[in-house]
Design a protein around this nucleic acid. Structure first.
Lengths: 333, 333
DNA sequence: CTGTTAGCGCTTTCAC
DNA sequence: GTGAAAGCGCTAACAG
């Protein structure tokens, strides 16, 4: 009834071999006969035996486990990344610890040291910090940073944010906008800086002046962006295009524009950033810059696993993978 | 430079005591003097020592780890639950494995056996299955089911879905609706059944007929709900209220109604279900039934930890916690 | 091809 | 109050 969990010793006894042989079969290390293999495997199957990952990890210093730290799992953009990471890592036999930092540096620290204590084989990290401590130096755990680019990050996978800002702004310009408002996040993330750079670059390329009054900073939320846009629209009635730092903010802008009795896209055109699902289902569906979250997952997993398996000396040289973004043209431009 | 990871032996040596003592102060097991404690703790702090959870788990059969299985992490409702679970479990020293089943039964199975192999102390499980295998019987891992109620689930934490259906329908009736369309999910989940029951119950209570033609089943997506609503509106122009199985579907309905040139809430009123963020930011903001995801996390963690700590004999009696829902009145009613 | 054996880092009797 | 020592379940020499 309450038989205790079956272990390798049991399997060994039941199949009449030594535990070493069982271990070899399990790990496909060779040096056993076809028949032994079959017998052992059969016994394992019959008893639904599973190796104890703890014990294994204790010996091998591998846990088949990775940690993922995200700022906010309820943000669809981040949950998409988590999902993509899972998609690529589970088939390789890994399980993922998901840690939500709540955009809080201290919480991040707690998560990191807890992940270290659990002996994760690697970490994928979207950092809230501007400057990251050297996790690899401290814990010898390979880390891949994604999305944001903090100082001291070694390996990272990021979107081509500058190109995104450029494409968004260019789209507005090509559709006839001459006075383009950019609604920026106040946070000093690299993503924000790069998108702004793209915005400025596009203006320059098309010979439009960069009016600092048309660049407003605001907290990254629907409500804040809505209000900021509303105020900007009052102060600068000439605005005929808006580029927002992300989709949620763009939705705020959309509603502010509507409130101001201006028509989208007739009077004012609008582009968001990220490509989350709300851009498809808002009214009208929104033009946006889509980030390739699947590729984020794929690339970061690929690099992390390579490092874990030491095919590449960890953090010997920094590696930066830039994932292309894509303009998704819909009905706000 | 490449000093290997510090272990309990090192701490013991450095503080001039035995490893047994170090272990005792670490676990606050008593039987050591105040001074020893301070000395050991100081050394631990200086060297930023962290216990090896693997080794500890090997001895104690506890990993300070729980698994959470969700159907789709990119669905805000589920990611909110994950977040709430984390919020309550991390302070207790646990880390959570998040597993996305992609609404697929086979994937769920893979996750479960992988979680078992990792030796999680417990599992919180939103199952896609109608009937669940007895995880506790097979693996001796305590499980708390949440949100959905599959057959054979022991302990579970669910919303008062029937009450939700009732409240939604009652709200529509009280605002004057007489022909209320219900857009249901086709899946046979308990949540769907109960919401329907509440809908029917409200109609009955207020003496309105239950017209089977006004109950349509559709895939759970924005697009499907939009189309279903559109068709229903054509077939039944008398419809003056719509209750949807979830918010995403309600948004589809909202747009179908607008497409049909009917005004919300003037001509047709609308209530969703879940209370995700889109209900606040759609236009007009939507009346909905809010599920208390925080309470989901809190209660399920509470019960799970109680079982893990054997304060309660696991699954001896089934326990059902029903979390109240709440009508959030906004501008679609 | 197969078995023996020494630990991995920790908890927990059992002595003192 | 403290230490010695026996494993937890597994891998990886090493010896045959």
């Amino acid at each position: 009834m309450d038989e205790k969990k079956i272990s390798m010793v049991d399997i060994a006894k039941l199949s009449g071999v030594s535990i070493a042989t069982v271990s070899r079969v399990l790990n496909k290390n060779g040096r056993y006969s076809k028949e032994t293999e079959e017998r052992v495997l059969e016994v394992i199957r019959q008893h639904d035996y599973k190796v104890n990952v703890n014990a294994k990890g204790l010996r091998t210093k591998r846990t088949q486990t990775i940690g993922v730290i995200v700022p906010d799992i309820t943000n669809e953009f981040f949950s998409q990344i988590v999902r993509a990471i899972e998609r690529y890592v589970v088939p390789e036999g890994y399980t993922v610890f998901v840690c939500d930092s709540n955009e809080d540096e201290e919480t991040e620290g707690i998560h990191i040291s807890s992940l270290a204590a659990k002996g994760v084989d690697g970490i994928i990290y979207i950092s809230t910090r501007g400057d990251v401590k050297k996790i690899y130096e401290n814990y010898k755990i390979p880390v891949v940073y994604i999305d944001r680019r903090p100082k001291n990050a070694g390996t990272l996978v990021i979107s081509d944010n500058e190109m995104g800002g450029f494409l968004a702004t260019q789209e507005l310009i090509k559709k006839g906008c001459r006075h383009i408002l950019m609604v920026k996040d106040t946070k000093p993330y690299s993503t924000v800086r790069h998108r702004y750079k793209g915005y400025a670059g596009a203006l320059e390329k098309y010979g439009l002046p960069l009016d600092p009054e048309l660049v407003v900073e605001t907290e990254v939320s629907y409500a804040a962006a809505r209000q900021a846009t509303q105020e900007a629209l009052v102060a600068h009635p000439e605005i005929d295009g808006v580029f927002c730092n992300n989709d949620m903010m763009a939705l705020g802008a959309l509603h502010a524009i509507r409130e101001a009795k201006r028509k989208v896209p007739r009077d004012i055109k609008l582009v968001g950033f990220d490509g989350v699902s709300l851009t498809e289902i808002c009214d009208p569906p929104m033009t946006t810059i889509r980030q390739n979250t699947d590729e984020f997952g794929k690339k970061s997993v690929e690099i992390l696993l390579r490092r874990i398996h030491k095919k590449q000396e960890p953090n010997v040289h920094d590696e930066v993978v830039v994932v292309p973004v894509e303009l998704v043209r819909r009905q706000t431009t």
